[in-house]
Design a binder for these strands. Structure first.
Lengths: 108, 108
DNA sequence: GCCTACGTATAGACTACCTATGCCTTCCTG
DNA sequence: CAGGAAGGCATAGGTAGTCTATACGTAGGC
């Protein structure tokens, strides 16, 4: 209960964003998001893997099997051109919504 | 399709927030949120009324039947003390999450 | 007389998340 | 060397919260 829940709809955005900096395997994606948010955001595996499946089907990422530095079998995900495009869309949408919400919240 | 979807989880927060400024009836709540956000946010009736029911059950708002300025039968909602407390909680939670998300998004 | 805006409310579908579970490997520690 | 923790991938099932569609009703303008 210490960690924050994700705001529904932002998971894909966050994953696309961390992949923009370079390919990562699933487990590392979750860790990276946690780390960047000072552990405020926790990505559950039961949320992450289905999301990655969806992103694969949409063509936003591509996957490749390989080995991690710790010699374990890992599936590495990398952003495609379509993924970059989608990232821009989701980011703009997120900005719009948060701006709109702020304008309500800061009501005098 | 022009208007933005709500981010799930923020509806209660927005309703509590506009009620903080004074009692309103349901229809007016939706209008107020739309207006404050320059019509970016659209609160659907099928979302709003169930949310208000929940807020009633939780004791965050109380309702009273009355008449609108246009002489129609309206149900006016006002914030309770518990509602004010909940507003503070949700607001803080929202701030924390958006801050965390921003810290991921602004990744170099 | 009809349409639009105003107004409340529920049922059903859908989306997207979480929990729980399963399975496997590597590494550390007792 | 046995066991557990941490590293890994993945699915099934439940749930929460939204949207769509529908229902019902009134006031006012054309």
């Amino acid at each position: 209960m210490p960690k924050l829940e994700l705001v529904p709809g932002t998971l894909i955005l966050l994953v696309l964003r961390v992949l923009e900096a370079g390919p990562l395997h699933g487990y590392a994606i979750a860790q990276r998001i946690g780390q960047l948010s000072q552990d405020a955001l926790q990505v559950e595996e039961g949320s992450l893997y289905p999301a990655l499946q969806k992103m694969l089907m949409k063509g936003w990422v591509e996957a490749e099997w390989g080995l991690s530095e710790t010699k374990r079998r890992v599936r590495s995900y990398s952003l495609t051109a379509a993924g970059r495009k989608q990232l821009a869309i989701e980011r703009a949408g997120y900005d719009d919504v948060t701006r709109a919400i702020q304008s309500v919240l800061k009501l005098a």
